[in-house]
Design a protein around this nucleic acid. Sequence first.
RNA 1: GGAGAGAUGGCCGAGAGGCUGAAGGCGCUCCCCUGCUAAGGGAGUAUGGGGUUUAUAGCUCCAUCGAGGGUUCGAAUCCCUCUCUCUCCGCCA
Length: 424
Amino acid sequence: MLDPKRFRDDLEDTARQLARRGVSLDTTLMNNLESRRKAAQMTTQELQSERNARSKAIGKAKTSGEDIQPILDEVSDLGDKLKAAEQRLNEVQGELSALLMSIPNIPHGSVPDGANEDDNVEIRRWGEPREFDFEPRDHVDLGVDNGGMDFDAAVKITGSRFVTMNGSIARLHRALIQFMLDLHSSEHGYTEVYVPYIVNADSLRGTGQLPKFEEDLFALANEEHSYYLIPTAEVPVTNLVRDSILEADDLPLKRVCHTPCFRSEAGSYGKDTRGMIRQHQFEKVELVQVVKPDESMTALDELTGHAERVLQLLELPYRVVNLCAGDIGFAAQKTLDLEVWLPGQGKYREISSCSVFGDFQARRLKARWRNPDSKRPELVHTVNGSGLAIGRTLVAVLENYQNADGTISIPTALDSYMGGITTL
RNA sequence: GGAGAGAUGGCCGAGAGGCUGAAGGCGCUCCCCUGCUAAGGGAGUAUGGGGUUUAUAGCUCCAUCGAGGGUUCGAAUCCCUCUCUCUCCGCCA
């Protein structure tokens, strides 16, 4: 959520900046709601103040044995007036906060203009795509022929957009998780955490998935609770700091977490239907940082570097893309995508998305820190990114490390995780 | 699943319709005292929001004692619903 003060003091400028994302802010509606809010709030508070004063007077009169009836008569209609005023205030505030919760973050100045992914800007490349002296195959052919991947079995068990894995490919999949967790926790300073994979609506509101993106989530049908499967570890991990005031020493708070992720992929029918690229369930190792406000942009670069390090150690060619204003997510100020080279597709595909949110999530989360300069609680900034998406990393390893005979070599970085297996 | 008990500030803990945003203690901060250490004395120490202000500060008002409703002129205190925690029994990886 953006600072409500923005909509009072810098409405036009805010509207202009949101327009970069293709969002048009109804400034007339906003002004109208805001002035109604102000009027209703002032009336309500005045009445409350009057009630408090009268009640206090009654208390005093009563203890000193005076007749309280005259004061009681005075306040007879106060209760009704107050109730009406409170109701009006609640209505306006409800409308206002629903509107505020649906307005996305403002793109950072370093975010390029643009409407969609075609306008994203590549900022660097690492590694050279390998020259094959045979026609490289995609991960589906490789995995299925190897016997390590079975999509038909997953269709039988559940439905489309799932996979089952067997034997050494399942092991490679697990090895990637262990490798990334170890790298980030022992070399990049992140503390490993384990969290619930099922979360409540408050948590999803905190990180921005609700109220606007419910259709992307798997909700658990239950009369008692409204629980959801996590679409990313960002949700439970970032919500660790919800409703808390951190000390300056606690920052930066760096957490790494492996979880499965569940996405309904509503609206992506017909897109990436083949293989493991887009699944309803996939594993991810997520990096989350909670930082002081003036450190968030540096933290984004640092965190992106940590994700890049995984690709470098696995010797997978990739590029870094600065998403344009029209392509960044709802809560993000800025997003850098890592795209890995996939020989089977002959193109770079997203394998990590690293974003800085400013105080947008923190405001929803009520996540603050005590600034020693002001001695007051102030909102923290949040940053996160995949480090990396496991399924897509597996795809990248299979396709980049394939041999002419259909076997797959294992990247040396994974040696200690594969129990002596060097070729699949 | 059954039976009980509970939820108050950073922590412990009083409070049982009015002067309680909340006693007392601990912790923490600042000051004084003490030649180290220990001890002692004093002051301060919740969060969010509104108004005022160019903006801080200040001033002022409002809200908050797990959450939401209700009763009342007035609720931490009474009533209802929900959530969570703890104890015992049952079941269980």
